Amino acid sequence: MEENKKEYEKAIAYIRSLIIKRKITIGSRIPSERKIAETLSISRNSTREALKRLENMGLIDSQQGRGNYLSGNITQSFSNAIEMMLILHQTDAADICQFRRCIEKTVYDLAYKKREENKYLFKMAKLLELFPTADLERQIKIDEEIHYLLVRATRNTLLIAMMDSISAVYRQWVGTVLRHASPDIMKQLHNAHITIYKSLMRGNPEEGIQAIDQHYDIIDHMSLTIHA
C-alpha cells in the first residue's frame, strides 16, 4: 500500500515537473498512462491513480478516446468542494455570503488602487445604464456581471479564481433570493452598484465600502425574510 502511494505521488511530481518546465501548457495533451508508467518504471494502476487525483483537483481534463489534457480548472474543483460542504452541512448560505462580503471589500480596495484606465470599470458603467429598463431576470444577470467585472478590475488572478469559485455556488442561491425582490429592493441594489462605481471614479473608498455593506445587508435581509 505504501509503495503504491509513493508511485502515484511520483507520477504527480513528474507531471508537475513537465508543467514547471513548460513542456506542457493549458490545452496540451498529457503523456499517456502507458508512457508515464514506462518513463517512471511504475505500474499503470499507480499512473491511473495519479491522473484521477489530478482530474479531481481540476488540473486535467480526461476526454474519453482522446486522452488527458491540462485544463487548470482549479476554480471548478474549489466550487465542487464548497457544494459538498453545503450538502454535508459543514457550511451554509449565510457563511458564504459573509465570506463573499469580506472578500469583496478586499477586491474593492485593490480595484480602487488600479482604477486608472481600467477597461472593466468602463464596462461596469455600461451595465449600470442598462439596469433600470431591464426585466427582473436581466437585472439579476447584470448584478452578477457587475460583481464579475469588479473582481477582474483587481487584475489579481488568485482573487479572481477565489471569487469565481464562491460565485459559482453563491449565484445559485442569490438568484433565488432576488427573484423574490420587489422593484424597490432591486432599485436599492442598483443604487448600491452606482455608489460603488462612482466612489471608484471619484476617489472615495469609504463610500464604496459602505455601499458594499449596504448591498449585502439587503441580500441578508431578503434571505431571512424568504426563509422565515
Results as ranks from 00 to 15, higher is better:
Gly58Gln: 01
Ile15His: 03
Thr75Val: 14
Tyr112Thr: 12
Ala228Asn: 10
Ile12Glu: 10
Asn56Phe: 07
His221Gln: 12
Tyr216Lys: 08
Ile146Ser: 02
Ala125Lys: 15
Ile30Ala: 03
Ile87His: 04
Met57Gly: 01
Thr25Lys: 14
Leu149Asp: 02
Ile82Gly: 01
Arg100Cys: 02
Gln98Asp: 15
Thr25Met: 13
Ser165Arg: 00
Leu136Trp: 03
Ser167Lys: 07
Glu55Trp: 04
Tyr216Ile: 09
Ile103Asn: 02
Ile82Cys: 01
Arg155Ser: 11
Leu158Asp: 04
Asp95Glu: 10
Ile160Gly: 04
His89Met: 07
Ser17Trp: 01
Pro205Asn: 13
Met85Ser: 13
Ile20Leu: 11
His190Gly: 00
Ile74Gly: 00
Met162Gln: 10
Asn56His: 07
Glu33Trp: 00
Arg100Gly: 00
Glu129Arg: 15
Gln63Val: 15
Pro132Arg: 03
Thr195Asn: 11
Ile142Lys: 04
Thr157Lys: 06
Glu104Gly: 03
Asn56Gln: 08
Asp135Tyr: 09
Gln210Ala: 13
Arg100Leu: 02
Asp135Asn: 15
Leu70Arg: 07
Gln98Ala: 15
Gln64Glu: 11
Ile24Gly: 09
Gln98Asn: 12
Gln98Thr: 13
Glu3Thr: 14
Gln76Ser: 12
Leu178Tyr: 10
Gly58Asp: 05
Lys141Glu: 15
Arg179Gly: 00
Leu136Asp: 00
Lys105Pro: 04
Leu189Ser: 08
Ile146His: 08
Ala50Lys: 03
Glu49Arg: 12
Arg171Thr: 13
Thr176Val: 10
Gln139Val: 05
Asp95Cys: 05
Ser79His: 04
Lys6Met: 11
Ile24Ser: 07
Lys35Ile: 09
Ile26Thr: 13
Lys6Glu: 15
Asp109His: 12
Asn156Ser: 09
Lys187Trp: 03
Ser167Trp: 08
Ile15Asp: 05
Glu117Met: 10
Lys113Ile: 07
